[in-house]
Design a binder for these strands. Structure first.
Lengths: 182, 182
DNA sequence: CCGCCAGCGTAGCAGTCGCTACACTCACTC
DNA sequence: GAGTGAGTGTAGCGACTGCTACGCTGGCGG
């Protein structure tokens, strides 16, 4: 692993803990045992570094999602996806993804474009898992978007103590009915 | 309206356009035709100003939500809530709310605490509307949280061009089945 | 007519930001 | 052994941050 990849991995760990918003080169460099000068030497600019961090966090979460075995039913798939999402290692990545998405809300770069492609990857992996778990093709698009959006929204809600339970149970029940009936 | 309220309203307009992240006192003051000195004089600190802005944006959206007449059915309620959410005046407020929520994700103040109470208000108003529109009590909690989380998530997705249509239709169908059956 | 104080402007503080200029070491090739 | 290039440390640039010290103004009550 080259120095650049080492830096990106370590910076990702740091961002997973502290978020993207306050991120600045000097404290980050100090935490990584190097200097801001070096971060810029290897990454080119802060924006490039941030883009790499977002990409790296997404890749870590994706690896876990792709390793998830097919679930027994659409309802079980939603539950399994949520369990995966709540695994600490995955959740921290998703929290970062949500933060990056919000930073792109007003078109601010590099968040807007980076998060766009990250989300396409994640969303299509969710779709794959749902398809493998018996969600009928006619419902696949809608359920994928619904599940994806709901989990993101729940992550936002969770930050001020709102429990995910009721919404999750409702979503599971809804997906079950939607995929068995009609 | 006192000078303080005028400033908060104008600052809210500005934040609705430009977001909370890059917000800094001097450009804001210039846009408002005053000086950073005055913002601090009337509001006390930047954090207090931000808290007021978030509160103000939430109040504007709430006013619209509370004026929404009861819908004909649970499914229609979801559709009506979404139509309300997509009204430009409301949507800008919700976009700001989502941004503020994300800024609170890592516990950063004043976002975390301000957004918490704003969300409680919004969530309970959504709950009221759903109850008025025929969502049975047993489902009220789950549907409220589901709808709320989904809309927030869709707002995040919308920023990189993902259409809300499929997820919304699926949510409407799901809520309809959930509230008529069993 | 005087004092007072809310409201406002000017100037500036100490600190942080991303980024760069420059000099230097070291391993390498020729 | 000279030259070369990647990698690194130091120091600092200009811009910007939230915030404050200080002085002025105008209208009010005494």
């Amino acid at each position: 692993m080259g120095r650049r990849e080492e830096i990106v991995e370590a910076a990702t760990d740091h961002a997973l803990d502290h978020g993207l918003v306050g991120l600045s080169l000097r404290p980050l460099a100090e935490a990584l045992g190097t200097s801001d000068r070096m971060l810029l030497y290897h990454l080119g600019s802060k924006d490039a570094l941030v883009a790499e961090v977002v990409r790296c966090a997404t890749a870590r979460a994706l690896e876990r999602l792709r390793a998830l075995p097919a679930s027994a039913s659409p309802g079980a798939a939603v539950r399994d996806l949520h369990r995966l999402w709540e695994a600490p290692a995955v959740r921290r990545c998703q929290r970062l993804h949500v933060e990056a998405s919000a930073l792109g809300l007003f078109g601010r770069e590099p968040y807007a474009s980076t998060v766009g492609s990250a989300n396409a990857l994640w969303s299509s992996a969710v779709r794959d898992h749902l398809a493998r778990s018996g969600v009928p093709a006619a419902r696949l698009d809608g359920v994928t978007h619904l599940v994806d959006a709901t989990f993101m929204g729940l992550e936002l809600d969770a930050s001020f103590g709102s429990p995910a339970g009721p919404a999750l149970e409702t979503l599971v029940a809804a997906v079950e009915r939607l995929c068995s009936g009609s």
